Every structure is written in C-alpha cells, then in structure tokens.
Amino acid sequence: MTVVLPTSARPAAEPALHELTCAPRRRGRVLRVPRWLRALSGPALLIALWWLASATGVLNPQLFPPPAAVAATAARLAADGELQTHVGASVWRVLQGTAYGVLGGGAVAVLAGLSRVGADVIDSTMQVAKAVPNFALTPLLIMWMGIDEGPKVLLIALGVGIAIYINTYSAIRGVDAQLVEAATTLGVGRAAMVLHVILPGALPGFLVGLRLALSSAWLSLIFAETINTTEGIGFLMARAQTLLQFDLSVLVLLLYAVIGLLSYALVRFLERRLLGWRRGFEGA
C-alpha cells in the first residue's frame, strides 16, 4: 500500500535538507581569511608585542620608545616634508642601482650560461667579485668617482648584479637537458631555443635572484648613503645615532622593514604574472 504525503507537508522537509547541504559552504566563506591579511598577521603581532612590552614597562622608553612616540616622530617629519624627501632620495638611488645591476648581471649571466667559453672566462671572475665585499670598495669608489651620486648608485648596482648573476647563471645551467635535446630534434634553431626553452626555464631562478638582489640593494644603500650625503634614509640613521635620537632610529628600522615588505610583494606579483604556466607545490 502506497502512502502519499500531502503537498503541504513536503516543503517542511526541503528547507532543512537545503540548510544541511549549504551550511558547510556558508561556514567556509565565513572562516576564509584573505591571504594578504594572513601575511600581515606576523608583522602586526610583532607591533602588538612591542606595544604590550612598552605599556607594561618591560622596555625602557628612553632606550626603546613606544609605538606612539615613533608614530609622532613620523608624523612630525612627514608634516615638515623631511620624511618624503629622504625616502624619495633613497628609493631613487635603489631604483637606479637595481636597474643597472639587473641589466648588467643578467646580460653577463646569459653570456656565461649559454657558452662554455663564456663560462670559463666570466664565471671565475664573478666568483672573485662575489668573494670581495662591495662595502670594502667604498673608499676606492670615492677616490675614483668623487662624492656625487655615482659611487652610491654603483655600490648598489654591484650588489644587485652579483645576486642576479649567481642565480640566473645557475638557473640557465639547470635547465633540463632533455628539453634542449627534444627542441633540437624538432629542428628548433639556436635563437628560438634560447627564447622559448632556455630563458623561460631559467626565469624562476632569475626571480629568486631578484628577490635577493632587492635585499642586497637596500643593504648596500646603508653604506652608500654614508658617502657625503645630506638626503636619504641612511642619512637619517646616521643623524639619529649622532644625536642619540632613539625614536628616529626605530623609525628608520620600520621604514626599512616596510620597504622590504613592499619589495617582496613586488617580486611575488611578478612571479604570479610571469610564472602562471608553472604549477608548483604551495603548501598543504
């Protein structure tokens, strides 16, 4: 015997079933946190710990000013236009040095990576250059080029160029030989092989080198801005040390940290744009 439920009784069960099937999706949307926000949680936690340590008296405010004092110093310098001037001067030097270093280091890496003779001539020379700290060249650069912008930009370019060369050269030599053999079998010419096989295969290594190069650029900037300059973040740091302005010293450290995060974000953006064809492990 078949029992037929009244039509009015059916909708009562359907919403319950709909809620059961859709509840996990709604919960997933609520709990999902944007990745960029998760990436900023670490720095935000450090600032919170800094504020807590200052509020509880763990940190001496005379030696390590609280966040409010550093923020007040930043606001004062920004209102005077001094902060923008120094940051702009440093960013411009880094941009120039990075551009020269990427072009020079990348070109030398390609010459050494594509040719055995080039590798024999260039690679040993670059290994010697890598072993010599470019900061030790500061006195010589001053004597050779004077105290203008030239030695500052060149010092940054040397640090960037070495980082680009090492990673790009290793990436070129790390391209799968089977891909090159397959391209040769298919009749691909030398120029097409370089453009479509070798350089795309070396692109991930180049971007790793760019990430290290940007860190080297800002590190080189600290020494570069000790060369008779009155503008730049390094100049602010030197002035803060001379006058024992601890709030300014902490502010400069925060500036370097923020610029480092922005540099990292730039390289990550390039990786997403240029390496969209590559699928790698992104963590569980």
Score class of each variant (00 low, 15 high):
1 M>A: 14
4 V>G: 05
5 L>A: 14
7 T>P: 09
9 A>W: 15
12 A>T: 12
13 A>S: 09
20 L>Q: 14
24 P>D: 15
25 R>M: 06
27 R>F: 04
30 V>H: 05
30 V>S: 04
38 R>I: 12
45 L>S: 09
47 I>Q: 03
47 I>D: 02
50 W>L: 10
51 W>V: 07
52 L>A: 15
55 A>E: 10
65 P>F: 00
69 A>C: 00
77 L>A: 07
81 G>R: 07
90 S>A: 03
91 V>P: 07
97 G>N: 01
100 Y>P: 02
100 Y>N: 00
103 L>K: 02
107 A>V: 08
133 P>T: 10
136 A>R: 05
136 A>C: 04
137 L>H: 10
140 L>W: 12
140 L>S: 12
142 I>H: 05
142 I>Y: 04
145 M>S: 02
149 E>L: 10
153 V>H: 11
156 I>Q: 13
156 I>D: 07
158 L>T: 06
159 G>W: 06
160 V>R: 08
164 I>C: 03
167 N>D: 09
171 A>N: 08
172 I>E: 12
174 G>L: 11
177 A>C: 06
181 E>I: 07
183 A>T: 14
184 T>E: 05
187 G>H: 12
190 R>M: 01
192 A>E: 13
195 L>E: 09
197 V>M: 09
211 R>V: 02
212 L>C: 04
216 S>Y: 14
221 L>W: 08
223 F>R: 01
223 F>H: 02
226 T>L: 11
231 E>K: 08
232 G>L: 02
234 G>L: 10
235 F>I: 12
235 F>D: 05
236 L>C: 01
238 A>D: 12
239 R>E: 12
240 A>Y: 04
243 L>C: 00
245 Q>N: 12
249 S>T: 09
250 V>K: 08
252 V>E: 10
253 L>W: 00
253 L>C: 13
257 A>Y: 11
262 L>P: 01
262 L>Y: 14
264 Y>E: 15
264 Y>R: 09
266 L>A: 14
267 V>C: 00
267 V>Q: 02
269 F>T: 08
270 L>A: 09
270 L>P: 00
279 R>Q: 13
